[in-house]
Amino acid sequence: MSLPAAAMNVERQLLLSEIAEFNAAYAHCIDDDQLEQWPEFFAEDCEYQIIPRENVDLGLPAAIVFCDNRGMLIDRVVALRKANIYPAHYSRHVLGAPVLLDADGRGLHSQTSYVLMLTRMDGETRLFSAGKYVDVMVRENGVLRLKNRSVVFDTHRIDTLLVTPI
């Protein structure tokens, strides 16, 4: 990653604030438990994965969540609501500022750090996951959507289980 150009032009600043706003809405959607809306942040033809940084560094493809279309995102939410048994919890995402890496024919390439705090029913808030989003966003009818979100997490020793998306 290189230093941002000294003279940032206005168009770039607008894009960055748009991405930041998108990410903030995405995080609040999860943290406010509006998970049924969460797949709408993605393009129909999309990829979403949550993958340990350790696997990425080793060039290994297995993830802890890997969806390669929007339908699979919906399946994850339905499983969480109807099938899965897990400790009830609140999620709290804290996001860093996005970095715009590239804008090309495929979309906007950006990267954003996150920390995810989890509060289970004992009331204690624990750092559950730290990592980054590696994103490609596209514009559909003027609205940004995720073509690709790779959640690469540093905290590769998971505490018990992961059910709620990051």
């Binding site: 340990p52 290994l60 493809p61 297995a62 505490d159 018990t160």
Partner: peptide
Amino acid sequence: LLGYQKVRY
């Protein structure tokens, strides 16, 4: 090898 999922219970 495809990869790891590591967890503590």
